[in-house]
Write a protein that binds this DNA or RNA. Structure first.
Lengths: 353, 353
DNA sequence: CCTGGCACGGAGAACGCTTTCCATCTCGTG
DNA sequence: CACGAGATGGAAAGCGTTCTCCGTGCCAGG
């Protein structure tokens, strides 16, 4: 008996189901959509016939067709810089979980920190007619870039796709943030309290708001205790592992006289630690390296690590609540601020805003 | 001046573009699709008119409409167990990059190791008419579960969605794998060569093929050197960080007399290290913990870590090549095996098939 | 027994796009 | 000058759904 293995048999359509059940297409649709017309409506027997038919044929509704008809897909878009980044992936998981609770799917795209890519991806999203878009790429103060982005987002918004930002930004959209400044200041305070006096800072690109806020807050926290950081002990680099790695060399002049290298993200801290070791400095024996974000895994392998816990996984839930106009604060310009906590030498010591 | 901010202005459609450009819809479609009909076809002037119109209106094609017409979406589906897992996210990034090179988008879903969820997600995928599905969840030897999955995949395949597996499986589909057995055996050999004699193994669920292969290979590698592992020094647990954490307690009887705890994944190793420390055992001072997968970050913070490097990011490229029937080996049952490398105390020492 | 109201199933349109087919137009050639 | 080949734009169909109407049948009330 020959198997028709290469038959590109077309998937069952609603029409197939209707035919098999002996009803019309709209009826089948109504039944499968949960009986819009009177919930437990219709002859029970008919309902069962349709459901049986659907099961028999292995029918699965085509979201594409639904989207094209309804004008909007049952999905939300998520833009991040890099999926492979630990922080990002935690946040993505949070968004997906939140979306799933609402019966929505998530389309994730990565910009890889390329502004052109970002623009292209937003254009794609426009065609995809998502319910909402969550923008989790780190925003900058570069006016040209940001206003180009703003224009894109405005279009998206005017076409019915809600926009939510994750993280601080100069753009005027609903957003969910963490008070990076105050958390960083609290971190600085804790480090001073622990007896440290000589600091260097590894921050992200100067234009980038998240790392700028963190570095600014950290410096402010230090100066509140009368401690200053030499100008050339604040270096800007890529906001990721490799950025932290290379930044260490820029700190060369200070390396032997430091208590703490404060990296403005856990990923940067990891890179810094690797490079410091290559240069013969051991962490935390010779100096301490602190991070920001709280990648869970780091606490396991570096129990003494000091960082700020950002509730990455909770961003998703908060963002979707805003994006989908659910009972949050009043409508209009909404903004949710989540709490960050300090983790000093592996121990959570409370909150900064 | 009032801003009509809430106008749910409909996105521009191809018809809008055509109207503005003064051409018919099919013409607009042909122009924007890259001029199927004669490449640099038509009056250049007409082409420009259409492109201008599209730009003016901010037109973005609707993939949903394309999919519904063409019968197939320009996308591939990717099923993983947990997006937040370090290994997973690296692999996802690889798949997305490979897909993007081919002009395809990726729909990622997570099963969270729940068989029911897995079935539901596969049903969803069926309706979504993807070009191909990449199944990267870890497969098991549980016959009931696997044959249910097989049935689902067969349907998918018969409906024109190619299926590729990442990782070993008993199911008969094209796949891309790593020779876990031999790599694990090589790892064992290297550890013996380093003078270790007393081993314990932390593996995933017994039914799960990946961890079973790794543990089996490891044991085989040891016994090739005349070393045996007590039966109760091989524990099975969840194939993730928490699994490693809890597994340590099951090894209680052996903990003080071990040279190496071999965890069958980096994530498990991390959990084990955390728990060992809580129990007063320091790694690598008191005993060594080895992993499997090579999460990049671990090498930075634990330079002496010993593990097996699995080319997670390359899985995507290989999987898509197979899935899309590109020039690989002959058609039919295809299978690509990627190379794993040993990383002993942070130094890459070569390959195990 | 007849009529009005109501509930429910079906016919048809519409969504945005591609594709097949056809009509037209241009140009080269006999 | 006429005819045919080749190219090119347009009309229409159709993809799988949902939604808006309609017609039908049922029941209650007069």
């Amino acid at each position: 008996m020959r198997v028709a293995k290469d038959s590109p048999a077309k998937p069952a359509t609603l029409a197939d189901v209707a035919r098999l059940a002996g009803v019309s297409v709209p009826t089948a649709s109504r039944v499968l959509n949960g009986g819009v017309r009177g919930a437990a409506s219709g002859r029970r027997e008919l309902r069962e016939r349709v459901e049986d038919a659907a099961r028999t044929l292995g029918y699965a509704v085509s979201p594409a067709a639904q989207a094209i008809k309804g004008g909007r897909a049952r999905s939300i878009a998520l833009l991040v810089s890099d999926i492979a980044d630990f922080g990002c992936s935690t946040m993505i998981a949070g968004v997906m979980r939140a979306a799933e609770d609402r019966g929505l799917s998530v389309a994730v795209r990565a910009t890889l920190d390329d502004a052109d890519r970002e623009a292209d991806l937003l254009t794609d999203f426009r065609g995809e007619r998502h319910r909402a878009i969550v923008l989790a790429t780190s925003r900058s103060t570069n006016l040209a870039r940001e206003s180009a982005l703003d224009a894109q987002l405005r279009i998206l918004q005017s076409q019915g796709t809600n926009v939510v930002l994750i993280g601080d930004s100069n753009l005027e959209y609903p957003r969910v943030t963490v008070d990076n400044r105050n958390a960083a200041a609290a971190l600085a305070g804790a480090l001073v309290a622990a007896g440290h006096r000589r600091f260097a800072i590894i921050s992200g690109p100067e234009e980038q708001i998240t790392s700028r806020d963190r570095a600014g807050g950290f410096l402010a926290g230090l100066s509140a205790h009368g401690i200053a950081v030499p100008e050339d002990a604040v270096v800007h680099s890529g906001f990721n592992r490799d950025g932290g790695y290379t930044a260490v060399d820029a700190l060369e002049a200070h390396l032997r006289d430091l208590d703490v290298v404060a990296a403005m993200s856990d990923a940067m801290a990891v890179g810094a630690i690797a490079r410091l070791r290559e240069r013969g400095l051991l962490v935390p024996r010779d100096l301490e390296v602190t991070g920001f974000d709280h990648v869970p895994l780091l606490g396991d392998v570096m129990p003494e690590f000091t960082t700020v816990q950002v509730p990455l996984a909770e961003f998703g839930e908060a963002a979707l609540r805003i994006a989908l106009d659910e009972p949050g604060s009043a409508a209009g310009r909404r903004h949710v601020a989540l709490k960050a906590s300090l983790i000093v030498h592996g121990v959570k010591v409370g909150a900064g805003s």
